[in-house]
Design a protein around this nucleic acid. Structure first.
Length: 809
DNA sequence: ATAGGGTTAG
């Protein structure tokens, strides 16, 4: 067949009807141009079967005019390889053939190749013309190379082509696509004659850079100067409405679409579905979707996404089913990508896996977007190993996939893995973006190293992200609070231009964990005055503040006001805060009663809270009951065992202590080793309980000896207490001697290694014990220094013998 | 023969 075509009828009937696929499953070819049906066409290359051995001779015998038509047909049908082959066989002394080849490459997204052909053309002495430059500009826009684009712009001014309206439109589009809005605006402003396309370039450009508002303003402006928008204008402005989440404007423009008779345009219809879906108006999206007579793949996919992104998970699945049954279309890779959030958000791991499996079977993989979606879905199901599995196999990881993996690690508490990945790409000079920082900053907050926190803050500031990006600013506030620097926390908060509800929640929580609940309350009222609507998290912050600072009456008042004044149902986390609050009053009956009366099933955190409450009065019976409940649930129960064990020890019930010890061994739970850290000169100095290996330990011991002597002299009781504990500990061979607790070494080291007048900041991984708490209070009085000890829950600000926690923690 | 456009992950 192929041979016949080549020898007998190389250029068959130009006017023959187009071969149209009869396969109803085949999606329409998106590359087809509008006028494809009317223009005489060269046969498709697959009908042509051009082979390298026998074609060249035949081809060169033909006139160049006919060859040009062939070249054009190849490009038009997307057969770039055939086109390039043919091109090489032709004498290419004319600009037109070069233009066509460059156009073909740009259409295929082969921007680098397009540029290299452009350079070859220039090098060969062929002058590019006004038709060449739009393609070249599009290629540089695609490569996001502003510099090269600017060079072309400069050259166009030089040769005087910058007055051509087509050229100008291309320049505008290039500038907008690379994100250089100002340059685009300048070109637009200076044009003497603007056509519809010039306006469309601006409307679409603004939407592209995420400035939906300017896009919509631009649309309005073009109408007001008498330019009638076309389908392109409308499609772009629907994108703008989506960006702004502005369904109201979307509806208005929808009306304009109908008035202008574009409502039957399939692309307009699809962009409408997309817009309504993104503006949380599923009903309107459905309405538009149902009106489409002949729904294509894109429309179905848009509807699937509309359901999935609006938590209508069941509908998104049934939509895929209908797509196959009614629409006679097979789900494609984009369907999979759209469907994944629906599975992941319902925690349907099996569904994620089956989509993954189906994608492998259908040959959708490798596909960077699908793989990234899989990473994200597996992490939402808490399956980090599976997320990692997909991630490590991604070839040509891009920024989005890296961001997804960093977020996956951070969301699941794998902070060191997240930091390792982040630092790896950072030190390899991989370009990162605001999303990268927004993802990694919570990990820095968990590292709780003030110097590292300052470093990352500096990086973010240098990139201009710390003031402009609210999510990042909020993370920075949280980071400083967690690192113990409340002053900087406040400074960053005050410096924020756009404070959202998260910013307020964070600052309220910051003061809460630092024990300054009064300020938290004050900030809450400030927030209300600033017309920021509180949410669930606000009350977690506020109630935590009341609990930590022992403001019982206020706590109850705010708890009761939640539903009454703000319409927020108290969740389990709020009950937890209230239980802490009750616990600190020592009224254990009330605590028990509170749990019984709770409308929600108590979690391990609730029982843990009751356990902590029972510790205060050493009510072992209650502690045992609470522990039993807590231990029956899947949870990290290390703290629970330790607390109970300590209570048994306090009561001298050593057999029970041993029992717990055996139980912990059985369960494979290791006691978390106490560790305290002090930073000096950008270095973290760690002190471990009962450890003598630290280099500074001798010096620290000397300092401690002096301090212990001073505190002992001051308060005799304290000395006696040490002796008592030491004796029992020696006889029982118990290693848990408070005077060997790392926090004391850390404080001592901090006192001699930091500047006078500045607070000593110690970070501790587990809760501080009562003895060490007393010790710290005394040192703060003697040394006249502020000592800040951040444990796993709160910050203790020791000053002049007192602690901000009011001796309850 | 030339410019502008819809669905997807972060």
């Amino acid at each position: 067949m192929a041979a016949t075509l080549l020898t007998h009828n190389y250029f068959p009937n130009f006017n023959a009807p187009r071969i149209v696929s009869l396969n109803p499953f085949e999606p329409p070819n998106p590359n087809q141009s509008h006028d494809a049906v009317t223009r005489p066409r060269f046969p498709k290359p697959n009908q042509l079967r051009l082979t390298h051995s026998n074609a060249s001779k035949t081809l060169t015998e033909r006139s160049n005019i006919t060859l040009m038509d062939a070249l054009y047909s190849f490009i038009d049908s997307g057969s770039i390889d055939d086109a390039l082959y043919l091109f090489e066989e032709m004498n290419h002394s004319d600009t037109f053939s070069w233009n066509i080849v460059i156009k073909g490459l740009v259409q295929k997204g082969l921007f680098d190749e397009a540029i290299s052909y452009f350079h070859r053309m220039e090098f060969g002495g062929i002058r590019p013309d006004k038709f060449t430059y739009p393609f070249v500009l599009k290629a540089f826009a695609g490569l996001l190379s502003l510099k090269e684009g600017e060079k072309v712009h400069a050259k166009l001014i030089k040769v005087g082509l910058d007055l051509d309206v087509y050229i100008c439109n291309s320049i505008i589009s290039m500038y907008m696509k690379v994100g250089c809005v100002e340059s685009g605006e300048n070109v637009f402003e200076e044009m003497s004659v603007r056509d519809l396309v010039s306006w469309n370039a601006m409307v679409s450009g603004y939407q592209l850079v995420g400035d939906g508002l300017s896009s919509l303003v631009c649309l309005r402006e073009m109408v007001s100067v008498g330019i009638r928008p076309d389908s392109f204008s409308f499609i772009s402005s629907f994108g703008a409405c989506s960006v702004e989440g502005c369904g109201r404007n979307g509806k208005e423009i929808h009306c304009q679409v109908i008035r202008n008779g574009f409502e039957m345009d399939p692309r307009v219809e699809t962009s409408l579905i997309d817009m309504y879906g993104k503006c949380r108006n599923v009903i309107y999206a459905e309405r538009v979707f149902d009106m489409i007579v002949d729904k294509n793949m894109v429309a179905w996919n848009a509807m699937v996404a509309g359901y999935a992104s609006n938590a209508r998970f069941y509908e998104s699945f049934s939509c895929v089913k209908k797509m196959q049954d009614v629409g006679k279309l097979m789900p494609d890779v984009i369907t999979m990508i759209n469907l994944l959030p629906a599975c992941a958000q319902t925690g349907a791991l099996l569904m994620v896996k089956s989509i993954h499996a189906r994608s492998i079977r259908k040959g959708f993989l490798p596909h960077i977007v699908l793989e990234t979606a899989l990473v994200d879905s597996y992490r939402r199901c808490g399956k980090l190993k599976l997320a990692e599995h997909v991630f490590t196999r991604i070839k040509g990881k891009n920024l989005a996939s890296l961001n997804a993996m960093i977020a996956a690690y951070v969301h699941n508490g794998w902070y060191s893995e997240a930091l390792e990945l982040f630092l790896d790409i950072w030190y390899n000079s991989v370009k990162v973006d605001a999303i990268t920082f927004a993802s990694i900053l919570p990990a820095y907050a968990e590292v709780t190293s003030l110097s590292e926190g300052r470093q990352i803050h500096a990086v973010v500031t240098k990139l201009g992200l710390s003031s402009s990006n609210t999510i990042i600013s909020n993370s920075i506030i949280y980071l400083y609070a967690k690192c113990g620097d409340l002053q900087t926390t406040r400074r960053c908060f005050d410096g924020m231009v756009c404070k959202d509800v998260v910013s307020w929640n964070t600052i309220i929580m910051a003061y809460a964990i630092h024990g300054f609940g009064r300020i938290s309350i004050q900030l809450f009222h400030e927030m209300i005055e600033n017309s920021i609507k509180p949410n669930k998290s606000t009350f977690v912050s506020l109630l935590s503040a009341c609990s930590i600072s022992g403001m019982v009456d206020e706590g109850w008042e705010y708890f009761n006001s939640m539903e009454r004044d703000y319409g927020i149902d108290p969740g389990i986390e709020h009950f937890g805060c209230m239980l802490d609050l009750i616990g600190r009053t020592g009224n254990l009956d009330q605590a028990k009663h509170f749990i019984e009366e709770m409308p929600l099933v108590p979690t391990a955190r609730i029982w843990g809270s009751l356990l902590s409450a029972s510790r205060k009065t050493n009510d072992i019976e209650l502690a045992e009951a609470a522990s039993k409940h807590a231990l029956s649930q899947e949870h990290d129960n290390t703290g629970c065992y330790i607390l109970l064990s300590n209570m048994y020890a306090e009561a001298g019930r050593w057999e029970d202590v041993e029992k717990i010890k055996t139980l912990m061994i059985q369960e494979g739970i290791a006691k978390t080793m106490g560790c305290s850290a002090v930073e000096k000169d950008y270095k973290v100095h760690r002190f471990v309980d009962q450890d003598g290996s630290n280099a500074e330990v001798n010096m620290v011991n000397d300092v401690m000896d002096i301090i212990v002597k001073m505190t002992a002299e001051e308060e005799d009781v304290y000395a006696r207490r040490i002796t008592k504990l030491r004796r029992t500990d020696l006889t029982r061979k118990k290693p848990n001697v408070p005077e060997n607790h790392s926090v004391r070494s850390a404080i001592s080291f901090g006192l001699i290694s930091t500047k006078l007048g500045s607070p000593v900041l110690v970070r501790k991984n587990i809760r501080i014990c009562e003895d060490c708490h007393n010790f710290a209070k005394r040192i703060s009085k003697i040394s006249k220094r502020e000592i800040v000890v951040g444990d796993s829950k709160v910050f203790h600000h020791f000053e002049d013998g007192n602690c901000s926690c009011g001796d309850y923690w």
